[in-house]
């Protein structure tokens, strides 16, 4: 067992964990932030994507011990308040970019970082950036629209 302290959405979460504990499990169980979902646990579906020091990573492919002293951002930290949404969340809402919503947190974490790096992306670039997140409901069309709408508003 190891003692770790991870900063998640600005709050330090401490825990004593086995080295094998996946980061995603730590976020979900120890920090109680269940917005990060496991869809495959082998790094393909992207549902568990979180940001590690600002960069999207798969939380099923990292051990919690590796996040000791690092900064993690999850979907719960996106909205500015209980009554407002982040522009990307708002654009998803308005574009009908989610159906069941299971993949949505991972997609938001990927796309938020993407728009920071590429604030004015073409639909083709959005599709390329989105390809590491599977969505079984939407056919992606409205997600691309939503990301583009957010980009327009965040300029």
């Amino acid at each position: 067992m190891r003692k770790i302290a991870v900063q998640i959405n600005g709050r330090v979460v401490e825990g004593e964990v086995e080295p094998r504990l996946l980061l995603g499990d730590f976020i979900r169980d120890n920090a109680g932030l269940t917005g990060t979902h496991f869809g495959c646990e082998h790094g393909v579906c992207g549902a568990c994507t979180v940001q590690l020091d600002g960069e999207p990573v798969r939380s099923c492919l990292m051990f919690a011990v590796q996040a000791h002293g690092r900064r993690i951002a999850t979907v719960e930290g996106m909205a500015p308040s209980a009554t407002e949404l982040h522009p990307l969340q708002q654009a998803f809402h308005e574009s009908h970019a989610l159906q069941c919503g299971f993949c949505t947190p991972g997609i938001l974490m990927t796309m938020e970082a993407f728009l920071r790096a590429e604030p004015d992306p073409s639909p083709e670039r959005i599709r390329a950036a989105l390809a590491g997140n599977l969505c079984r409901c939407t056919g992606y069309q409205n997600i691309v629209t939503g990301v583009r709408l957010a980009a327009d508003r965040m300029k």
Binding site: G35, F38, T74, V75, E76, L85, L98, C100, G101, F102
Partner: peptide, 13 residues
Amino acid sequence: DWPLLRGEGTFIA
């Protein structure tokens, strides 16, 4: 949409 976008949904896991 609202809870699903905010990570506040309750899926079975």
